[in-house]
Nucleic acid binder design. Structure first.
Lengths: 225, 225, 225, 225
DNA sequence: CATGAATGAGCTTTCATTCAT
DNA sequence: TATGAATGAAAGCTCATTCAT
């Protein structure tokens, strides 16, 4: 193999990129180190020059994804004059994977994330994201209470539960979405479930009926047709 | 090895028993078929006589566990003159793993189930249980609506969400519980979270404040001290 | 590869035989498991069916060699009417590798055993042999004391030292022997060193001058010419 | 890493120092080049600038150790008016590792040298030391013969055998010494074996009874208590 | 029904050494 | 002199599954 020298960080990210794609599509356990290095075009030794083990690579990956998500969230929420409900809806809409424009990408993403081969990776990313994002969300909940639009006795602990619900919705959506092509009648069910989760979050937070949007109707229509 | 003849089902259940214990304690992927047959005291050939593959064994196991849980639930709910809230609380209390009497057993169970090595098995059992138990719960929700104590527009879909919440509480509990020995101050947090989940379920269902009990206070005290 | 079924012990010994030959000729560390299985004509899995690890194979091998040596010694010494000196000389002569008839075999054996690639195996075999054979030798020493031909205050500990000397002689012999072809004048040195070791053993044991023979002169001549 | 320029020999010795420590504590085969360069704080390239290969480093190390030992011996024996027995005892006492003051250091040294991971290094150092020190010892033996206190027909070859015995004693000592803490009763055995080796050397050289001391009783007591 | 020897592709990891900079 | 990214052959080992008996 021709020797190609690169900057440390660049090479490291190349490996992380390749691993992310492969882990998403095949799962962590089902992805041999060999596949990763082939994809990057490096040798075994180079891989282990950057990561002590395959598992450590998974951790690095989870860390990177979490940081990206968080940076995205923080940037999005950095608008002082937004009210709590707007911020929350922004958060939901922003983190919703469906904002992506086309079906194929979404299906790929769904298969990637909500796949039994990927439970470990998902768990790691989820745990880290929840830990890091909970304070952000807690701040929004407090703001909502101050604004008089939320009403809950558990502003600091509630965020974890909200994440659970969102994850739950994500899984349910991922379960039904791929069936739409063959069973267009399921479209109604998706909408119903969306409304159920929105209703749940509203009740949870004691927010006004119809205030919470897990995604704009327009965005949803764009995807599920 | 001496040849031992046994009734087909008995032998099959012996294998399932051994596998269950090993999968719980080490995880599915981390348990080689060899360990299972050693534990049971049978040969390779015998194992593959009863199960086509290791994965098929996992499925059988998930099915068996689900059936047990379900039988338990159905038996428990087979009391026509119980009101919906009583039934729901019975369901929560019954499925709560903490009803077990002593700390050690609970810690073992927690480590068994809420362990990253066991994500796949947990997922399979969860999915099956939710699918099978949702109709049961839906019936209770409908009963509650009829009785005028519940108020929701999604009586048929809500049960899945309720299971999610319960699982979520289980995970949170499993996370904090083992720390109690060293940090008794976390006891307050467990109680707070319990109350949060109860509050959430009440709000979801539109049930009266204080009506839902994820477990009696007495039972909880018995365990967390 | 065609599946060839064999009895457990037979196959195990086939593997030990192959390993012994390879370890002797190349050394333990320098012999990959792959070479062993190729030589035997079995698969990786079969190898690990019989031995948990490569190191465990080495231990088994050392054990087998030791047992063979010991069985040989015990059989040889099982003559009640032999006096101590005769027994000891028998032991030396018997264990002397040079009793083998021809040069090539001896050179091969020498290279096999007294080779820096083989230090670990040699050490393991030595340690085991010494531990097992010391009591045998101690008994002879005691017999000699009783017969009035030996005189030492350390009859029980001396055997280990005797083995050391024999090993030492073996190494020295192995060092000089291969040079004889090119430097026939070294023949005298070998004889001198042989006499030195004999003299040393006699002095240790307080045995009569000229009583100890590490090998008959005739046998030696036969080999070194 | 900042580029650090040092005198060639100084840097080379730094590498040798690090390697010596690591080889002693982990063994040659078990010490990767990476560990050495990390310890020294240099790069891969620098290492290979000073040593062509890892094996060549081992040889350099063995050479250095041998030279140190030899220099020590020569300095010690550079006293014209000492008689042969005194010189020999000085040699034994001087090379005995137990002259070190405290248990911990000795145990560390024992573990370092008499460890199966270190057979190769030990062999190399031994071989070199024996080759270099034998003439020194032969001179002492000749002196002893002249003085009428030694009596042997093999003054020139005997030294190698003496080294073997000393090594043998060293190994035996290393075997028993670490057990003393738990089994104080082994102390008597150590003393007995010491006496056996002294007796052997005396008989060997034809030296007067009680003349040879592998170490002063006082020094021994100081260590084994 | 039961045995257990046999398979072999596949895994992760190691590490002495090279070489462009 | 010095750096450290890159190499890649080779290692030991795992384990679900097969099949002759």
């Amino acid at each position: 193999m021709a020797r190609v020298l690169k900057e440390y960080d660049q090479r490291k990210n190349e490996i992380l990129d390749a691993a992310q794609e492969l882990f998403y599509s095949r799962g962590y356990e089902q992805t041999p180190v060999n596949s990763i290095i082939e994809k990057v075009g490096i040798s075994k030794g180079t891989f282990y020059h950057y990561f002590q083990s395959k598992e450590q690579l998974l951790d690095s990956l989870a860390e990177r994804v979490t940081n990206q998500v968080l940076a995205h969230l923080e940037k999005m929420l950095d608008k002082p004059n937004l009210d709590a409900i707007a911020k929350l809806n922004l958060m939901f809409a922003g983190s919703a994977s469906w904002k992506a424009a086309n079906r194929e990408v979404i299906i790929a993403l769904m298969n990637a994330m909500y796949n039994d081969n990927n439970l470990l990776m998902r768990k790691k990313i989820n745990t880290r994201t929840i830990a890091a994002a909970s304070p952000l969300m807690a701040r929004i909940v407090h703001q909502g209470i101050t604004e008089g639009v939320f009403n809950t006795s558990f502003p600091d602990d509630i965020s974890e539960m909200l994440f659970q619900l969102m994850t739950g919705f994500g899984e349910k959506f991922a379960e039904i979405f791929p069936t739409l092509e063959e069973h267009p009648e399921n479209k109604a069910q998706i909408i119903k479930i969306l409304e159920m989760y929105q209703d749940a979050i509203e009740r949870f937070l004691g927010a006004p009926r119809g205030s919470i949007k897990l995604g704009s109707r327009a965005a949803l229509e764009k995807i599920i047709g």
